[in-house]
Amino acid sequence: TTEYTFTDDEEARRAIEELKKRGLTFRYEKHGTTWRVRVD
Rank of each mutant, 00 (worst) to 15 (best):
T25F: 13
G23Q: 04
R36C: 14
T5G: 02
K21H: 07
D40P: 09
R36V: 15
A12S: 02
D9P: 13
D8L: 04
K21G: 05
K21Y: 05
D40K: 09
L24N: 03
T5E: 09
D40H: 13
W35T: 10
R38S: 14
H31S: 11
T2K: 10
E11K: 07
T1I: 14
E3F: 13
V39Q: 01
R22T: 06
D40A: 11
A12P: 00
E3N: 05
E10I: 09
T5S: 05
F26D: 01
R36E: 07
R27I: 14
L24Y: 10
G32S: 03
R27S: 15
T7Y: 14
T25A: 09
D9M: 10
D40S: 12
T33G: 14
K21A: 11
Y4C: 15
E17K: 11
L19Q: 00
K30F: 05
Y4V: 04
E3Y: 14
T7P: 03
R27A: 12
T25R: 12
E17G: 07
K21V: 06
T25Y: 12
T25W: 13
E11N: 06
E11R: 05
F6W: 03
A12L: 14
V37H: 01
K20R: 12
V37E: 02
F26Y: 06
K21I: 07
E17R: 12
D9L: 10
K30Q: 06
Y28F: 10
T2G: 06
Y4N: 02
Y4L: 09
D9K: 09
R36H: 14
T5W: 14
E3A: 04
T2M: 12
E10T: 09
K20V: 11
R27E: 13
K20H: 08
R22L: 13
T33Q: 11
T7I: 06
K30W: 04
V37W: 01
H31Q: 12
A15T: 10
D8K: 05
V39A: 02
T2I: 14
D8S: 13
E17L: 11
R36D: 03
R36S: 07
V39G: 00
G23R: 04
H31Y: 10
T33S: 12
E10M: 09
G23L: 03
A15S: 04
T34W: 06
R36L: 14
R13K: 11
E29C: 14
E11A: 11
H31L: 13
F26W: 03
A15C: 15
T2Q: 11
L19S: 01
R22W: 07
A15G: 04
G32H: 03
T25E: 09
G32M: 03
K20G: 06
A15E: 04
E18I: 11
E29D: 07
K21F: 05
R38P: 00
T34Y: 11
Y28N: 00
R22S: 12
A15P: 01
T34L: 13
L24R: 05
L19A: 04
E3D: 06
F6D: 01
Y28I: 15
D9A: 12
K20P: 00
L19M: 08
T34M: 12
T33V: 07
E29W: 15
E18G: 07
A15L: 14
F26N: 00
G23M: 03
A12G: 04
R13F: 13
R36N: 06
V39N: 00
T2H: 12
R27M: 11
